[in-house]
Design a protein around this nucleic acid. Sequence first.
DNA 1: TCAAAGGTTCAATATTCCCGAACTATTAAA
DNA 2: TTTAATAGTTCGGGAATATTGAACCTTTGA
Lengths: 103, 103
Amino acid sequence: MARFTHPRLEDVPLDLALHALADPNRLEMVARLAAAERLRCSDAAPCEAIPKSTLSNHLKLLRAAGLIETTQAGREMINTLRRSEFDRRFPGLLDAVLASRPV
Amino acid sequence: MARFTHPRLEDVPLDLALHALADPNRLEMVARLAAAERLRCSDAAPCEAIPKSTLSNHLKLLRAAGLIETTQAGREMINTLRRSEFDRRFPGLLDAVLASRPV
DNA sequence: TCAAAGGTTCAATATTCCCGAACTATTAAA
DNA sequence: TTTAATAGTTCGGGAATATTGAACCTTTGA
């Protein structure tokens, strides 16, 4: 069914990538994905309180930034970090960001 | 006269730093400062077309993110990159960003 | 003393973001 | 096979942010 489109990393501008990371909620989501490999949308959520529509928008933005890939599995959407591709495009960036992230 | 206040780097949250960098104009300004050591505001401008007030706002944001220091010299404001401090606070971040910046 | 240079601040407009409500698609239950 | 529940997307309007022209401040050169 392929509902989502994922950009080629070479088409992702640096500012878009930085913008995607420049938000505490999205950063938390990226960190969770970095730790967990595969997560459903609701499990990638940065906290309980966040509304579904907001969560969906954050994930859309992370997709557009080339940070995550989303595939459908039944009625769930499974998200994974596009780690190696992202690292090839922006060497050291994600490591630096995740390393200086507050606990 | 000390018109500007500069944050201690440990008080700068990661998202603020990323947000400051997540803009093509500010990124260009940071790159110029990285190359030039000291620049007046107008010389740090990313292009000719940018209005003075916009430029001033960008510099204010860069200051708040701990990226630059501004001191008054006569009627000019001299900006410098707080490189070593920023690097200590966010190791590898600025290098990664500047390295994958488009020419 | 006055005018120009170099920037800042303010306020109005333009843009972007957030989130509730309505919707779609899939699966489990009756 | 309906029906209901689950999992998430999309849309639209209000809230928050960004941009920028106009007015202002400070310093220096004439």
